[in-house]
């Protein structure tokens, strides 16, 4: 098999194995399905361009996630866009038809969840999604983000508290939950204030 064929074959396996994960994570990060697809395309384009730099293909997933994280930060900075609480209507329709929950219940839950995520500061959102959505362990997340394990545990705990508070309230009052830039991880609710760590 030619070198170029091997590259293409490896790339295709990444798309099949991780394409959905990357899209899912992108959607949860940016909150918009069009943006999520754009980010996913950028991630895989970057992966195709620089796949030779990945020495251990077993780490492809983490590598793709790190590309996603960087692309997401660029997206936030370049476009000065804010995450929006929109989600994939087709996915919702599919879930509703599957009978797992009542349409109203599922729709409300998804809307609330994405709205809460959109209001969650990236410092908390990124480690939370890596653990809760991407299945990384806290230690892997700490290594991935280059922050102490204790910080990861604390941020995830606070992210979870923030989301639950949002989801439990009938009318999310994100403005009251935001924190000021000078506030840190310590005792403040982790509302959105800035970029990911």
């Amino acid at each position: 098999m030619k070198q170029s064929d091997r590259r293409k074959s490896l790339f295709e396996s990444w798309v099949r194995d991780y394409g959905g994960d990357i899209y899912r994570c992108a959607l949860r990060l940016c909150g918009d399905s069009n943006c999520a697809e754009e980010l996913a395309q950028e991630v895989f384009f970057e992966a195709w361009r620089s796949m030779d730099s990945l020495r251990d293909s077993a780490k492809a997933r983490a590598w793709l996630l790190s590309i996603l994280r960087h692309r997401y930060m660029h997206w936030l900075r370049d476009e000065k866009r804010r995450p929006k609480a929109t989600f994939n209507a087709e996915a919702e329709a599919e879930l509703v038809s599957s009978g797992q929950a009542s349409p109203a219940e599922l729709l409300a839950r998804q809307e609330s969840l994405q709205a809460a995520l959109s209001d969650l500061d990236d410092r908390y959102k990124v480690p939370f999604l890596l653990v809760f959505l991407e299945g990384m362990t806290c230690q892997q997340t700490a290594t991935f983000l280059d922050i102490p394990l204790g910080t990861v545990l604390s941020r995830i705990h606070r992210a979870r508290q923030f989301l639950r508070k949002h989801l439990d309230s009938e009318r999310p009052q994100s403005g009251h939950l935001r924190i000021h830039p000078e506030e840190t991880d310590s005792d403040q609710p982790p509302g959105r204030i800035g970029g990911a760590s």
Binding site: F11, Y23, E90, Q110, F132
Partner: peptide, 27 residues
């Protein structure tokens, strides 16, 4: 239990139709 529910809710995303084909066309 709540954590597991969050995991399930978070994963409840279906990639748009044709995404895989579009990604495969990148090379």
């Amino acid at each position: 239990h709540a954590d597991e529910q969050l995991r399930i809710d978070l994963a409840r995303v279906t990639p748009p139709p044709g995404l895989e084909e579009r990604l495969l066309a990148i090379p």
